[in-house]
Write a protein that binds this DNA or RNA. Structure first.
Lengths: 233, 233, 233, 233
DNA sequence: AATGAATGAGCTTTCATTCAT
DNA sequence: CATGAATGAAAGCTCATTCAT
């Protein structure tokens, strides 16, 4: 009953592991574990982003969380497992910032759609401007440590692209996007539009003006690409 | 007499002092240092790409090169210095594969230009298909370890974009590219066109068909963007 | 609550951060840190004196103390820092053995003063007879490693000489030491009187008879030097 | 013929080893070995005094001597063996500087004897002023590395004291030194008179004025101690 | 449940010594 | 003989993980 020994699973990364506390209806110590885990993840997020994963000692995570080192190991099986969750935490931050679903689904014209894309791009840029290390954590640390973590980022891109593709399809169906387009490819291209800007940000070059120019230019191209062929032809 | 002595920066080697009494003895190997360095760099390239820089011990590099640990330090001052050269080695691989200069400078129409871009993209894809870890090394490891290394990569992108921008300008001047374009932004966008494909490759998804479709679609957009407005409209 | 926490300078321990959630768990051992430090210092004293500082590995200190290497670094930041404390430990041994303050301040004649000096010399000799390596540690190791440590020893000699000088001045003021003496120089000379004996001891020659003869002879000279000129002459 | 393989003696210090090239009457390569050895010893003296024995790599000795590392091992069996000879070299320097035999044997009065002692002391001080590291090498490095080396220094002191003792005895015999003295003890005390000054110098405190005052005071005491009892008594 | 003391494997780096040339 | 390339043992130090309390 209620087995939650996390340790004996061995010492190397084994899948994910959110199997805790999901059997409803037992009030007592049910929430502490989750709160503790959250507490540790947030502390780890802070120190990992500040100094990098490898350079961060568990003791630093524990100190930041205001708990003992041993306690960390009651809630996570290994340092690596914490990184798993920190990456998730970071991805959630991105999702929460961009709020893509809120932006999509309402456009009724190419112009409205490009506006939505612009908004999304702006939000991404705002986020990485506010938390420059987040980008590094997601793009670099995650990928450097483990391919599996990288997969999760790919998943983020894929989901985003899928949402965009749906929007494109909706526009095609509604008749305000020209139909002879490969929406799948295009959706990925749209998502990757932020690539150059992020790459620059990642490497410490932060030039909002340049970024806006890039976004504007690419959106202009996008607009022309999506728009219905002019009536004349 | 005869400037040989190509040994590394040799932080520890202190001068030589007097040059007396060096008439005899095993003559310094002129080529050995370079060959050894190459040998170590290639070994390091293999283990760094396989396990990541941080996770790789110098002993692993030495073992891979078939030499003793101490020997590694005869040719490089530190593990970090080896990474420097490994990154350079990787960049050279990319440059050698893509052979961008050979592709550019000859186009006389938008179609020829897009063909050149397609060729470059294909070569990049071929390379990362052959050496999947190279990408990881350059994009991830380099950035993770040191900002200076990251700058070098950013520089690579910048140089490439500059070459492309020059080509675009040439086309504009020659009259076969429409003049109302931001060639700077566009050149970066063109370079980043390989982004989605590389991202997939980076994460282990290798789908040549998908890739070709992506390339084709984006090049199609590019073509439309560059082409002069048709006289009729 | 209540200021406990006497841990070392703890270069690596980063604050604590928040003090929440520390109600339970194994309470911090108040005495342990001090006992452990003492334990390590004593072990280090033994191995440093036996083999020399440079020739001693931290692992030897740890083994001698019956603890793990890592534990040593919980209590001291570096090998060098341990030497600091070992030297202090040695100096304390000397001070505790000689008990100079107890010998001085009571003499009321040259004879009593020379008796006090003889007692001090005897105690020094007794100590180095009991712990021959102590001398080596203080005179040789300390000076060899770091000028700062050497200063500490020089300070020890200076303090001792100052105490003796005060005693001489007291004798001059009281009229039982002839006034035309350079008490500063003489006090150093008195302290250095043990020099020949220590030098022998340091080099493994231990001849109590010879030593007593030396002490007696030098004290005899001292007595003549200090004594008031006989009224007759 | 003429076996001079120095290597196979093992790898740890084995006695001294000057068994080379002492079979007279063979002109050819007879001198090179000695010159080479001298060359190496002098180079080692320079780097050992400059940086300390432990901190000096054999490669530094070789570089300083302008020869290859391997060559060093053709003339000496180990680093430790080189130190042996460097210490001897240092002792020779001291002996050559002080030229004690030249100072002694001529005094015909206490005043002349104390003058000779003062001269000797001055020469010692001059030497350590000129080569401050020599002192450190002899007193500290030698003692720290190996007790056997320290013995050699003790020998130096013993020889010097013996010379002084002979002089004292001569004075006693000649009737200008009072006969009721322990010449053995006194000779050591005289030699140790330079102790305080050397100790200061060793620790970086160089105060010629203070030193002269000390010497003067002690010599004054010595003079009174040696002088015949005044006629009156 | 929580703690922090303890550990040892493992890291990078140095260097005395050997030996093929 | 002379050389310098090669080596591997060993050093100081770090830190993820365990476990007695």
């Amino acid at each position: 009953m209620g087995g939650r020994r996390l340790r004996p699973q061995g010492r190397r990364h084994q899948g994910r592991g959110r199997e805790i506390a999901s059997r409803t209806g037992r009030p007592p110590q049910h929430e502490l574990p989750l709160r503790r885990r959250r507490q540790i993840i947030e502390a780890a997020y802070e120190v990992f982003t500040a100094q990098g994963y490898e350079a961060t000692a568990i003791s630093a995570v524990a100190a930041r969380a205001g708990i003992g080192q041993g306690t960390v190991y009651r809630y996570f099986g290994s340092k690596r497992e914490i990184l798993d969750h920190v990456i998730d935490f970071g991805i959630e931050k991105v999702m929460a910032s961009v709020q893509l679903p809120e932006l999509l689904g309402t456009a009724t014209s190419v112009a409205e759609l490009t506006d939505a894309v612009r908004s999304a791009a702006d939000r991404v840029y705002d986020l990485v401007e506010r938390e420059p290390q987040l980008l590094r954590l997601l793009l670099v640390e995650a990928g450097a440590i483990d391919p599996e973590l990288a997969q999760r980022l790919l998943g983020l891109e894929a989901i985003t692209a899928a949402l965009v593709a749906a929007e494109l399809t909706r526009g095609v169906d509604a008749g305000w996007i020209r139909p002879d387009l490969d929406t799948g490819v295009l959706s990925h291209a749209i998502v990757m539009m932020v690539g150059p800007g992020l790459l620059r940000q990642l490497h410490g070059v932060s030039d909002p003006h340049e970024r806006r120019r890039t976004t504007a230019t690419l959106l202009h191209l996008l607009e022309k690409a999506l728009r219905l062929p002019s009536v004349a032809s």
